[in-house]
Structures are given as structure tokens and as C-alpha cells.
Design a protein around this nucleic acid. Structure first.
Length: 399
DNA sequence: CAAAGTTTTTGCACCACACTAAGCT
DNA sequence: CTAGCTTAGTGTGGTGCAAAAACTT
């Protein structure tokens, strides 16, 4: 097929790293992801055995292949005779597991013939995979996630730890909401995007526990621009109140409420839109809807001293933390969302959207992988062999 | 309220080199 | 038409610095 590891370009890729958007062989996977604590947190999953370019999220038991959303859709769509094939979700992992340990995560997993025991595996012994994570969770173990009954996943991510401190109280309140919380603790699956036989609605919601990098807005917008337009249309049509099921949407000092409500409502949108974008659909598309809504509301009126909405976007799902009280909180007594405010907000949103087009995005995962491990002096790349003051692969510096 | 001073935020250039794409043989 | 080669241009991330913005006096 001609597909090779994005890093070494030699071995057949086996796993897909969402954070790096890279297909890697086991050896490089361990090398790259043992480089530092952050890379170790990258959640990876098997590579789709059909297209060899997307992360697999289900395993077809009958066909014994791991499939991405798209290939699964193509192969198991309702119109095909294979639609009744039994499939099981494929979990993600982080850390630096050995092939044997991967086999314990995925019973069907077999080490490719070409991929021998890597030096990384031999030398580093960095296996840090947490049994619970491997079997039940998406991503880093430090994520504490709960869900409310609208399907909002609230992540307690390191990414927003700073902001969380300022919003800590409201976040805590949100997390502690007795009425809304189902106390569902951690989501269980990593990547199922649509409803499948055997996957519950809860499983669907689990999608919202996303890797922060996957929440790159341009990426979603690029793939699923229509969903954004949809959200925008709702705004412009004044559909916010009806969308949220309340006519008293808070205005001032309540961006958080609005965002949270939009959050929950977006889930509905997702379900409605999903089939239309199935060709390229992925879990990302779900977050596209979610974050787009967040984008608008958080961008609407930044509080003094707060970071910009863009910062929230950078943190992806963790932006949810900043939303303060959940939608089921009684609306405040302030004026409702007037049409003038809405128009103004839409204008700001469109402006923001325009500028966002120019934001940086990683186009070549292999280059990113190289840059990630390249030695630097004061942030600048140095020639191989030259003295350096920063080596991403080494916890200590040369000086 | 305006001006001056201070602090914070934002944007960008820099670096090496693997990789891509285009052009040519 | 395809394959192989050459070459120019691109993109990648961490850091430092300058400019702009925000804030205080």
C-alpha cells in the first residue's frame, strides 16, 4: 500500500497519535512518546487498517479489522450487508507500553512482523500505562471528568489549571452540581463517533472527553465548516433561547451560562448533523459543534483580566470549565439577550472567525515530530552536533 | 479627564533541516 | 507516459525582543 511510519518512514504504521496527527510504527511511537512527560500523555489508538490514515475506533469482530469512523461507515453502513457485524470499541492508551501490554489492552492486537522490539522498549522501560486508563479511559490519567445530564463533559485538565484557579469556585460548583451530575466519573471509550450497536448514548457522550490538541478549531472548521455555519445561523436567527429551552437567557455576567447551555444544545445538533458529514466524520466533528458554540459565547464579551476566547479555544474541551454555572441554574435577573446584543455578538464572532483562519496549524506531522525533538539554543534550532541548551529528549540540559 | 509611567499581552523573527513540489532528463 | 534526479521553497517549535495594549498613578 505504500504507507509508512510518519516518523521513520520505514516501518509500517500501527498506531495513530491524535495529538501529533501522525501514523507511527510501534518503535517510533515509543520513541516519540517517551521523549517527555507531555508527549507521554498523548493518547494513541490503533490505525485504521483500511485507509491507514485515520485513527481506528472500532474493531469489526467478523472481519477482524480495526476501522476508523469513515471506513466503518463505508463498510458497515445501514445499506450494506455488513451492517450487522459485531463491532467493539477500541480504547486509547498513553504512556509507552510494550507490544505485550498493548496486547493486553487490545486482545486482538498482534505485533506486526516488521516491528521488532524497539530500542525504546528495551532501554527506556517507560511503560507507564495505567490499567484503568488502558481499559477504560481516554487520555491522560490526570483528567478528572464528570458529566451532567446534558451530556456535557467537564474536564479538569492541566491545560486550564491557571484559569481554573480564577474560575475555581464556579468550576467546583459545576462539578459538584448534585442535581445535574450523574456521577459518571470517567468516560469509558475513546473514539466512537456515532451510535453503533452496542454503544450506548453514554458512550456517545464520552466522545467529549477529547485530547486537547484535537480540539483545534480550524481543523474542525476546515472539515466541518457547515456545522459552524449552522451554529451561526442559529445565532443570527435568534434561536438561542429556543435552542436552550429557556426564554430568559442571561446576558451580562453570564457568558458562562450561555456557553454551557449552548454546549448541551450542541449535542443535539451533533446528532442531527452527523449523518450529513459522515464521510469525514470523526469524533472531532462532535467537538466542532461544541467548541464553535463555546467560541461564540466566550468571545462575546471577555471579562477584564480574563484571557481571550482564543485562549479558551486553545484549551479545547477544558474551556468548558470556564463556563461557570451549568444551564440548569436559574437564570439571573438581568436583561435578556437583546437583538442588538446578538447582532453585535454575531459581528464580533464573524470577525474572530476571520482572524482565526490565519492561526497556525500543523500541516505536516512529520515535521512537527522532528521539530519536537530538535535541539535548540534559546529557542532556535542548532546544527546537529553543536552545543545546545535545550534538548526536548533529555530532562537535563547540556549546560 | 488627560498625561505620564508601568505592567501585561501580543506578534514575530530567528534558527536547521527534513520534506514537498515542481521542473527537468 | 513513467521513473529518477535536482533544486528551490516550506514548515516545524521555543525563545527573546519589540511594539501595542491595558492599567495605574
Amino acid at each position: 500500500m505504500g504507507y509508512n511510519c510518519d516518523f521513520c518512514g520505514d516501518q509500517r504504521p500501527v498506531v495513530y497519535c491524535r495529538s501529533d496527527a501522525a501514523c507511527l510504527c510501534l518503535s517510533c511511537d515509543r520513541n516519540v512518546h517517551s521523549a517527555n512527560a507531555l508527549s507521554k500523555r498523548h493518547s494513541r489508538t490503533l490505525l485504521c487498517e483500511r485507509c491507514n490514515s485515520q485513527p481506528a475506533f472500532v474493531r469489526c469482530v467478523e472481519e477482524r479489522v480495526s476501522l476508523c469512523q469513515n471506513c466503518d461507515w463505508m463498510g458497515h453502513g445501514t445499506s450494506t450487508s455488513n451492517s450487522r457485524h459485531k463491532r467493539q470499541a477500541i480504547n486509547c492508551y498513553s504512556g509507552c507500553p510494550s507490544s505485550a501490554e498493548l496486547s493486553s489492552i487490545w486482545p486482538f492486537f498482534q505485533q506486526p512482523p516488521s516491528a521488532g522490539e524497539s530500542s525504546c522498549e528495551r532501554e527506556l522501560g517507560l511503560m507507564s500505562i495505567n490499567e484503568n486508563i488502558a481499559s477504560t479511559s481516554w487520555g491522560p490519567m490526570e483528567n478528572n471528568i464528570s458529566q451532567d445530564n446534558t451530556g456535557i463533559a467537564i474536564t479538569n485538565d492541566t491545560c486550564n489549571s491557571d484559569k481554573e484557579s480564577s474560575m475555581g469556585e464556579s468550576s467546583a460548583r459545576l462539578l459538584d452540581q448534585p442535581s445535574g451530575s450523574k456521577d459518571t466519573s470517567l468516560p469509558k471509550l475513546c473514539c466512537p463517533q456515532t451510535k453503533y450497536p452496542g454503544l450506548s448514548e453514554d458512550d456517545l457522550y464520552d466522545d467529549f472527553n477529547m485530547d486537547e490538541v484535537d480540539l483545534n478549531l480550524e481543523k474542525y472548521e476546515e472539515l466541518f465548516g457547515m456545522t459552524l455555519n449552522h451554529s451561526e445561523e442559529l445565532l443570527e436567527n435568534g434561536g438561542i433561547a429556543s435552542l436552550f429551552g429557556t426564554k430568559d437567557m442571561p446576558a451580562a455576567d453570564s457568558d458562562c451560562h450561555v456557553a454551557a447551555a449552548a454546549e448541551g444544545s450542541s449535542v443535539g445538533l451533533v446528532n442531527a448533523i452527523q449523518p450529513a458529514c459522515s464521510n469525514a466524520a470523526s469524533a472531532d466533528s462532535m467537538m466542532s459543534n461544541k467548541t464553535d458554540s463555546i467560541l461564540y459565547f466566550t468571545a462575546r464579551r471577555p471579562h477584564p483580566g480574563e484571557s481571550s476566547a482564543g485562549d479558551y479555544q486553545d484549551c479545547g474541551a477544558s474551556s468548558m470549565l470556564l463556563m461557570g454555572e451549568p444551564p440548569w441554574c436559574p437564570p439571573c435577573t438581568e436583561t435578556s439577550f437583546t437583538s442588538a446584543t446578538r447582532t453585535d455578538a454575531v459581528m464580533r464572532y464573524k470577525e474572530k472567525k476571520k482572524t482565526r483562519m490565519f492561526e497556525k496549524r500543523v500541516r505536516y506531522a512529520s515535521r512537527k515530530a522532528r521539530a519536537d525533538v530538535r535541539k535548540r539554543v534559546k529557542g532556535r534550532f542548532v546544527k546537529a552536533g553543536d552545543a545546545y541548551d535545550y534538548d526536548p529528549l533529555s530532562p537535563t540540559r547540556s549546560f
